[in-house]
Design a protein around this nucleic acid. Structure first.
Lengths: 93, 93
DNA sequence: CTGCATCCATCCCGATACTG
DNA sequence: CAGTATCGGGATGGATGCAG
């Protein structure tokens, strides 16, 4: 469910900074292409990790946020982050 | 570093059951092909997560075990396992 | 603004046969 | 026993253009 190239950082961004619109995410991850961002978001949505709120306006507006299930991943993120910091301490460069 | 299809379960097996020989791992994961098992083990080794001990005998003998870095991943595994159990409780089927 | 359609390169893994 | 060699297919991500 989190196997995509950008899924973890997307979830992390939504976890730490809350609701985000599509183009906000594009700006925050300049390397990801539009097509890929769309697909990763759709996959996260169909796995129930994020919510997708569409506002039927012109111009369109779509907001992404963590679902409850997505939020429940947060302890894992913290554990991974802790590991990463220790790993960098023991393997400096 | 743990992105391969079988890397997490290989690490988990080594974490919970200690040293394993090549063909023991093959038997324990019947779905993995020889070629793929070899590659995943080599990648784990070059990332420093497992140790590869070769005994220059006939017939050959190679033992795989967790490195200290590999062992340090264990808290993450526990956190993931905990999440998985809760997820299945909340999403029964 | 938020997409979809198309085409393409690469990576990952599997199937199978062979080897010291 | 513990691999290597070869071939191939499917998934993943990128580039580019078009659209409501």
């Amino acid at each position: 469910m989190v196997g995509g190239k950008y899924k973890l950082i997307i979830l992390h961004k939504l976890a730490t900074h809350g609701i985000r619109r599509f183009n906000e995410l594009r700006r925050e991850f300049p390397n990801i292409t539009q097509r890929t961002l769309t697909r990763q978001l759709r996959e996260l949505e169909s796995d129930g990790l994020i919510n997708r709120q569409v506002y039927p306006e012109i111009p369109p507006k779509v907001e992404y946020s963590l679902s409850e299930t997505g939020k429940s991943l947060y302890p894992i993120f913290l554990q991974i982050e802790k590991w990463g910091l220790e790993y960098m301490e023991n393997n400096p460069k």
